[in-house]
């Protein structure tokens, strides 16, 4: 099975560009993905994840939330440093290491983003991006309940990143209470932060599924382009717009 997945990923072009413009992903499982998207948004997210995230946002004072968010992000810096090294980006690795050291000490265990306040802003890196940096294609697009949008490459990258995360390794592995608690806070933070954006996508898009898929493809293409030190490929806007704009 793993061999099949690797073959599927390797056989995919590194970054598919739509006939119209902008990066996109192959979606051979679109009917299943759309069904899971609907299930997630009309069921799991609507009745479980979103209410929990909203309660978390309501009962947790903003400064506490920001502190937790900073601390969770800080614990990701060692993983970022490792991936940046694997991507041959010493400057990003040095920045992640510097951020981790400064925020873990002066920033009270990561609760305060002191480094960020001094223009040393976060530049995350992950293992899916590392695979993309070295030419591994995205593979088919997948929409997974709770997890959300991903591709075979990024899904595998996420699992590897989770299993070998330096902080997890240093604190007893990915199955400890600490690791689980950290994942829960990270998930709550991410869902809570994305709440207005997701509401807007569901309200403002004519096809929310296509919007989420397109946004995901762009976001990942930009991450891989950054890892390669390339200028992001952007579509041509054309020189001959038609008709009256009014």
């Amino acid at each position: 099975m793993l061999r099949l997945l690797v073959l599927a990923v390797a056989a995919t072009p590194m970054m598919a560009v739509a006939a119209d413009g902008g990066p996109t992903v192959r979606d051979p499982f679109e009917p299943i993905n759309r069904a899971l998207f609907k299930l997630n948004n009309r069921g799991i997210d609507r009745f479980l994840v979103r209410p929990v995230a909203r309660v978390y946002r309501k009962v947790t004072p903003a400064p506490v939330r920001r502190g937790l968010s900073n601390a969770v992000n800080n614990l990701r810096e060692p993983g970022t440093a490792v991936n940046a090294i694997l991507q041959a980006r010493p400057a990003v690795a040095a920045k992640a290491t510097g951020r981790f050291l400064v925020n873990s000490t002066v920033g009270l265990g990561g609760l305060i983003d002191v480094a960020g306040h001094h223009s040393l802003e976060r530049e995350p890196a992950d293992f899916g991006q590392t695979l993309g940096r070295w030419g591994v294609g995205q593979g088919p697009y997948l929409y997974l309940p709770v997890v959300g949008p991903t591709t075979v490459r990024d899904g595998v990258g996420g699992l590897v990143g989770y299993a070998v995360d330096p902080v997890s390794q240093a604190t007893g592995g990915p199955n400890t209470d600490f690791a689980v608690g950290r994942s829960v806070v990270r998930g709550l933070e991410a869902r809570s932060e994305a709440d207005s954006l997701l509401t807007s996508v569901m309200t403002d898009s004519t096809d929310p599924y296509a919007t989420v898929r397109g946004a995901y493809a762009q976001n990942r293409a930009a991450a891989v382009a950054a890892a390669r030190g390339e200028v992001e490929a952007l579509p041509d806007f054309g020189d001959e717009p038609q008709g009256d704009p009014n």
């Binding site: 004519t206 296509a210 976001n219 952007l234 579509p235």
Partner: peptide, 24 residues
């Protein structure tokens, strides 16, 4: 012509949304 926030360009996303709606 376009604005990007959180790594996502607005006009490109709108195009993917609209084209999918028309295709469907």
């Amino acid at each position: 012509a376009d604005v990007q926030a959180r790594g996502v360009w607005l006009a490109i996303t709108l195009q993917q949304d609209f084209v999918s709606t028309i295709d469907n």
